[in-house]
Each structure stands twice: as structure tokens, then as C-alpha cells.
């Protein structure tokens, strides 16, 4: 078991009667890319703020980079990097001045500051924009600048709160390339997102729903959870013509537990005793020929949908 960089036990935050984070426990090991997923308002930002030491937890304990977040929050300052959800650099300052400012804020001076600046400018390719006001940067470049500023003081952990919200797909891809590069340098990354494809890129994922942590682990382990892939069932992908009509057909079949459309195909969870031939026959009876049936592994979306549904039914029960 590698060393845990972030560790929390029963971390809870209540605002009056509202519980924003409800007894959340997990640990993140060094160098991993930990993805925290969940719908808006599920408590992701609150959790990050507590782990960064800027929000007092109501209950529970947390250690980040070896520092007790609750009792020695001051020692934590300067040991973590944080990119908040809102762009939080100074619009009036140029790219270069923002770097200068954050460097000094973290106590860097002289040659050391110059060296860190150069390293991060090279890493984020901000060279062309050094003289430009931050206000005039596009979303993707703003995020790069924010990341450069958050990394100037070489924190072992970087928290990123929805870093890819609202930026274009190319910038999103490039930002993830940057994250992989950082991870390869041994920096632990804690990322929140609600893009499922980004979850697939993480080495570890956790899903938070209605303030509670529903699941946490490596993506492959999650796919093999018995709740997600119950024994005696299998997941299939069927590609066919008129897929929406086909969906209605397979949903009526006994032994089909769930079915949903995915572009030109549909994904379903069915009892293992239903053969590929059974599906082809049923679809042919509905006038759909040449259906291609193949087994697939559950996606992380399948994992989260299954677990959320189960959680909701437990809450209402």
C-alpha cells in the first residue's frame, strides 16, 4: 500500500440544518489522479475546501500531506495547490505579473522564483501570453495560468475544482495531458468533475451523491462490484438499425434488467441465460435485422447510475 497523501475519516460539514458533506472517509495515495464525481450541489467543493484548510469541518478528521487539517490548518498553507471552481486570478494583472504575485505570496524570491516561473511557463506553454492581461485570456489559457500559479511553490498535492468546466474540447484534452504529466512527476491530483469520460482517465474515482460518498476505488474494481455486475448477469451492446424501436422490444423481454440507448447502439444488463441468439430473434420479430450483439464491460457511468439508483431506493425505503 503506497503512502497516503490525503486521508479523511467521517469528514462532515453542516451549514445550519443542511449537511453539505456527510461522514465522508477515503484515502488517496501518492502520485494518483483521484477523481471525485457527483452532481452539482452534492458537496464536492465543500469537501475540497475542507481538505485545503480554508473551511472548518463540523466533524471528522483529515490529514493532507502529513498535516492535520483541523488542528494545524496553518501548517497546511503553502503545502497544497488549489485551483478553485471560479477563475480566481487577478484580471488586471498580466500573465507574468500573476505568476510574480503568486510566487511572492508563497515566499519565493530572487533566483528561485525566476527558476520556478521558467519551469512552469515551459510546462504550460504560456510563453506567448506573458504580457497579456489575464482578463483577455480564453478559458483554456486561464486554466493553464491558474495551474501554473497553483504549482509555483511545488506543492505535493494539487486540488482542482472542476478545472474543465466550460472550456472547449481541445483545451480540455490538453489540460488532461498536463495533469498526466504532473502525475508522472509524483504530484498527487485531486480533481472534481462531472464529465464521465474524465472519470475514466483517473487512477482512482469516488462518487458523491447527496453529501454522501457512495463508492470509491479503482475504476476496474468498481466495474466488478457485485451491485454493478450481479452474478448470473452480463452486459451487452447491441448495434442495429432503428435503435429506439429496438430498445422498446428488448425492454419487453423477460430477463432484461435495464436497457439504455448509446448513440447507434444500446447497452443492456440481462440475465446470463439470455443468449445472443435470443436477442437477434426478438429484434428480427420486430422487423430489425442484422443486429450485432457483443458483451461489454460496464462503464463508470453504469457503475454510478446503478449505485445512485440503489442509494435512492434505500433512502426512500
Amino acid at each position: 500500500m503506497p503512502e497516503a497523501v490525503i486521508e479523511c475519516q467521517n469528514l462532515t460539514k453542516r451549514f445550519g440544518h443542511f449537511t453539505a458533506v456527510d461522514h465522508v472517509s477515503f484515502s488517496v495515495s501518492r502520485g494518483s489522479i483521484f477523481g471525485l464525481l457527483g452532481p452539482n450541489g452534492s458537496g464536492k467543493s465543500t469537501l475540497i475546501r475542507m481538505l485545503c484548510g480554508i473551511l472548518e469541518p463540523t466533524e471528522g478528521t483529515a490529514r493532507v500531506a502529513g498535516v492535520d487539517v483541523i488542528h494545524s490548518a496553518d501548517d497546511l498553507k503553502g503545502k497544497v495547490g488549489y485551483m478553485s471552481q471560479k477563475f480566481s486570478l487577478y484580471d488586471e494583472l498580466t500573465v507574468s505579473e500573476n505568476l510574480q504575485f503568486y510566487g511572492r505570496l508563497y515566499g519565493l524570491t530572487g533566483a528561485r522564483l525566476a527558476e520556478r516561473r521558467e519551469t512552469l511557463i515551459a510546462l504550460t506553454h504560456l510563453e506567448r501570453y506573458l504580457g497579456r492581461r489575464a482578463a483577455l485570456l480564453s478559458g483554456g489559457w486561464r486554466q493553464r495560468l491558474a495551474m501554473a500559479c497553483a504549482l509555483l511553490h511545488e506543492p505535493p498535492v494539487l486540488f482542482l475544482d472542476e478545472p474543465t468546466a466550460g472550456i472547449d474540447p481541445v483545451a480540455r484534452r490538453e489540460l488532461w495531458d498536463l495533469l498526466f504529466e504532473l502525475s508522472s512527476r509524483g504530484i498527487t491530483l485531486f480533481v472534481t468533475t462531472h464529465y464521465m469520460d474524465e472519470a475514466e482517465r483517473c487512477s482512482h474515482v469516488a462518487y458523491i451523491f447527496m453529501s454522501k460518498l457512495i463508492v470509491c476505488g479503482e475504476p476496474d474494481d468498481l466495474r466488478n462490484l457485485p451491485e454493478v455486475s450481479p452474478p448470473g448477469t452480463r452486459r451487452l451492446e447491441i448495434t442495429c438499425e432503428r435503435v429506439t424501436v429496438g430498445l422498446q422490444t428488448v425492454r419487453k423481454m423477460t430477463g432484461v434488467r435495464s436497457a439504455t440507448v448509446f448513440g447507434q447502439s444500446m447497452h443492456l444488463l440481462a440475465d446470463a441465460n439470455l443468449t445472443d441468439e435470443d436477442f437477434r430473434r426478438a429484434l428480427a420479430a420486430a422487423g430489425i435485422r442484422n443486429a450485432d450483439v457483443r458483451p461489454i464491460a460496464p462503464s463508470l457511468e453504469d457503475v454510478f447510475v446503478t449505485l445512485t439508483t440503489r442509494e435512492e431506493s434505500q433512502v426512500s425505503a
Binding site: 498553507k77 486570478l89 508563497y106
Partner: peptide, 13 residues
């Protein structure tokens, strides 16, 4: 309001 305060708070300022 602009959220820059949050960024200052995580620093050793």
C-alpha cells in the same frame, strides 16, 4: 465576490 480571496486563503499569507 470575485473568488480571489479563496486563493489568498490557501496561501501562507
Amino acid at each position: 465576490e470575485r473568488g480571489t480571496l479563496e486563493q489568498l486563503l490557501v496561501s501562507p499569507l
